[in-house]
Simulated scan of single mutants.
Amino acid sequence: MTNLVLNNIGFKYPDGTLALENLSLEIPQGQRVAIVGQNGAGKTTAVKLMNGLLKPTTGEVIVGEWNTTSKTTAQLSRKVGYVFQNPDDQIFHNEVIKEVRFGPKNMGFDPERIEEMTQWALELCGISQYAEENPYNLPYSMRKFVTIASVIAMDSDVIILDEPTAGQDKIGLEILGNLLKTLESMGKTVITITHDMEFVTDHFKRIIVMANRRIVADDQAIAIFYQEEILKESMLKPPAVAQMAALLNIPHAVLSKKELIEYIKSHHQSVEKV
């Protein structure tokens, strides 16, 4: 089991910038978690501590049975895979299939498993048809899927996705949603940083809100997006459905499009009867 535990973490960058302080968090294996908050809240710093790209200034990060301070990033990548926000910071091969194949090959998988994981990741990310293409000939949204495929092909227990919805259209968002469900069904932990609140409410039961270098809320969407104090401190806007529900003066919390439509239909029918 690869549970993630951050115990009283603090992190300060070499220039003296304090990015995190007194942050504690536990994520059991198999959970699907969204981390949200404005830029500078400490989200990316927190997840980079989980895979060893950064080491805590104070406190400890435990990945499974490992303390990250005693392991290299390469060792930790066997347990925690991290997809960068900008795909151009991650891609370095001139063919998509080479990029995706590199991870499992570097992990020492046997040739049959390398091919199996590569093809599976390409298909899951909807980019099989681009296998022989140069990644830099693909649009930004597809390059994002190339980097996602290259990480999930390594079969790590924990997958971290940094802003995966950036630049995605409706089809891309559907692929991401299916990908999250598939990984969860395999017992993978999926941690996603995103500014897309609609994507959060559609796909995540547990939401961690960060502001001012700490966690200000850790709960379900319905308990977060209707709390003015949390939204104000984290400078988050509720998803469009919740904003519409507020404009319509719906007397209860609404986060799904289906529930909003049903309320409008029933209210319209009631008005017609009158």
Rank of each mutant, 00 (worst) to 15 (best):
M1I: 15
T2F: 00
L4R: 10
L6C: 15
N7C: 13
N8K: 02
G10Y: 08
G10I: 06
Y13R: 07
P14Y: 05
T17N: 15
L25D: 05
E26D: 14
P28D: 09
P28F: 05
P28H: 09
V33C: 11
G40E: 05
G42E: 12
K43R: 12
T44A: 04
T45I: 11
L54Y: 14
K55S: 14
T58L: 13
G59T: 13
E60R: 15
V61R: 04
G64C: 07
R78N: 13
K79T: 08
V83S: 00
D89V: 01
N94H: 15
N94V: 12
E95D: 11
I97S: 04
K98E: 06
E99P: 01
E99Q: 07
R101P: 00
P104N: 12
M107H: 14
P111V: 06
R113F: 09
E115N: 13
T118G: 03
T118H: 01
C125V: 09
I127L: 12
I127V: 14
E133S: 15
P135S: 08
R143V: 08
R143F: 04
T147G: 08
M154D: 00
S156Q: 08
I160N: 15
D162G: 12
P164F: 06
T165N: 11
T165M: 04
T165F: 05
K170P: 10
I171E: 14
L176I: 08
G177N: 04
T182P: 02
L183K: 10
L183T: 12
E184L: 10
E184G: 10
K188R: 15
T189I: 03
V190H: 06
V200H: 03
T201H: 05
V209T: 00
R213E: 05
D218C: 01
D218E: 04
D219P: 14
A223C: 11
F225H: 08
F225K: 04
I230E: 01
L231T: 03
K232G: 05
L236Q: 05
L236G: 12
L236C: 12
P238G: 02
P239I: 03
A242T: 09
Q243D: 11
M244K: 15
L248D: 04
V254Y: 03
K258G: 11
E259C: 07
L260E: 00
Y263G: 04
S266I: 07
H267P: 10
V271C: 07
V274A: 13
